[in-house]
Design a protein around this nucleic acid. Structure first.
Length: 357
DNA sequence: GTACGTTAACCTCTTACTTCA
DNA sequence: TCTGAAGTAAGAGGTTAACGT
């Protein structure tokens, strides 16, 4: 993390990640026919442009120009990584967990569906015969919210976290829950499921709340590290992989970006607070120095007859060489030669002409 | 080349719901 | 058991860029 603070200055910054931001602000100021007054930027030093593949050009363009985007992955510094979310070879049904487990409400038609492509998940109703839910282009399942499926009671617990499209989770009470496609949760060994289902049936208008499984979240998180935005292909692939609707993946990424931004804003805020405090202290110190110098000016007018050319600033610590240096410089100024001040950092500063006011 | 409408992607704000202390 | 805070999925509305006419 680097912080760059530029006051009334448009010089190139050593902070590479600031270049774009500074440029942007400068451009804005140019439009206003005024110079940049204050520029402060905070960010990850890893910000850098990256080449983009043709397929991801649009997304990458956005990624590059948005400094708010987190750059946590190595892919931001390397060649673009093609995110292939589809398994290289489809897992045969016989190897999948769901093939070994049959939910009581699943008929053979559904069982014969490939796991990854179709079937039963938190968003899709397991269709029964011709009553299969319609799926829109977006993958949105149009189905009755008042499915009776959720009223089934799980008489067994499944080891798999995701099986047959439905989601098996372990809740805080160490009870397994089955998240059916209309978001009702069926618990193992509890009566809660049926009561909840009946609640849902009572007010079918209430919005169902899906809770992504840890595995789904982790997978999405990994994908987010690679790309904070998704192109349509990636979105669909990811949705397929996780048995979610593309819309859900889209929303997750939106919320994830918002969360990242919020956190970054908090960090920025904290940092700016500290910077503000530092600058306030510095300002106080400089005011004090100025007062001292003014006092010196009034008490020792002899020196002030000399050109007030001796106030220098250490380029390293940016501290003004104080009264001692002034005295030396002033004396040297008698000889008309520029004064050399040895700063504690080993640099040698040259006294620049200027007025002490 | 410019203006205008459409569309898709994204952002921000908000709501509804879950979880946890 | 109740309650409030925090976290989060999802909806709504606005903005912006790309594209076609």
């Amino acid at each position: 993390m680097e912080l760059a603070l530029s006051l009334g200055e448009t010089n190139p910054t050593p902070f590479s990640f600031l270049h774009k931001a500074t440029q942007k602000i400068t451009n804005n100021n140019n439009n206003n026919q005024s110079e940049l007054g204050f520029c402060m930027a905070l960010g990850n030093s890893a910000f850098s442009s990256r080449s983009s593949s043709s397929s991801d050009q649009d997304q990458d363009k956005k990624n590059i120009h948005d400094p708010s985007k987190p750059v946590s992955s190595s892919s931001d510094l390397q060649l673009p990584l093609q995110l292939d979310l589809l398994p290289s070879a489809p897992v045969p049904r016989s190897q999948s967990t769901s093939s070994q487990l049959r939910f009581p409400w699943l008929n053979d038609n559904l069982i014969s569906e490939p796991v990854g492509s179709k079937g039963f998940d938190v968003n899709r109703l397991p269709g029964v015969g011709s009553t299969q839910p319609e799926e829109t282009e977006d993958g949105v399942t149009i189905s009755s919210p008042n499915s009776t499926l959720s009223s089934f009671h799980m008489d067994f617990c499944v080891r798999s976290s995701s099986s047959g499209g439905g989601l098996i989770r372990t809740n805080s009470n160490n009870k397994r829950e089955y998240h059916s496609n209309n978001n009702n949760i069926i618990e193992c060994e509890t009566e809660r499921a049926s009561s909840r289902a009946s609640d849902d049936e009572e007010n079918g208008s209430t919005r169902k709340k899906l809770r992504l499984s840890k595995e789904q979240s982790a997978f999405l998180e990994e994908s987010f590290k690679e790309h904070s935005t998704l192109n349509p292909k990636q979105k669909v692939a990811l949705a397929k992989q996780l048995n979610l609707r593309p819309r859900q993946v889209e929303v997750w990424f939106q919320n994830r970006r918002a969360r990242t931004k919020l956190k970054q804003t908090e960090v920025d805020c904290e940092y700016l607070k500290r910077c503000c405090e530092t600058l306030t202290d510095e300002n106080r110190r400089l005011q004090k120095e100025l007062q001292e110098l003014r006092a010196l000016k009034t008490s020792q007018p002899f020196y002030m007859q000399l050109p007030a050319t001796t106030l220098t600033m250490c380029p390293s610590c940016e501290r003004v060489a104080t009264s001692g240096a002034v005295t030396v410089a002033g004396t040297a100024a008698n000889s008309g030669k520029p004064t050399q001040h040895r700063f504690p950092h080993g640099q040698v500063g040259k006294a620049a002409p200027g007025n002490l006011q």
